[in-house]
């Protein structure tokens, strides 16, 4: 292995740029899906929007705008 000790990138077998960049996008998509799932868990566990926002490092308005429609839709 010829991994660069600083970056951890293995220069002997680098990913092809198109594949590497696609992986970056896939990670973002995965993060979004995990955020959806874990926000639902947090609300279920009684967390407030403010607490969730602090934990996600965003404003309360941002997290409310993004996630509250799901709960409105689920409400009877």
């Amino acid at each position: 292995m010829d991994a660069d000790p600083k970056t951890g990138i293995d220069s002997a077998s680098p990913l092809e740029p198109g594949e590497a960049l696609r992986s970056v996008v896939a990670l973002r998509q995965l993060a979004d899906r995990l955020e959806d799932e874990y926000v639902v868990h947090a609300v279920g566990a009684g967390w407030t929007w403010s607490q969730i926002a602090d934990a996600l490092n965003v404003t309360r308005q941002a997290v409310h705008k993004k996630h509250s429609p799901r709960f409105r839709a689920a409400a009877p």
């Binding site: 990913l15 590497a20 992986s23 896939a26 899906r33």
Partner: peptide, 13 residues
């Protein structure tokens, strides 16, 4: 795409 960068897809709801 995830596996290429060492990430295994976790079970998702």
């Amino acid at each position: 795409a995830l596996l290429r960068v060492g990430v295994t897809l976790p079970p998702l709801a």
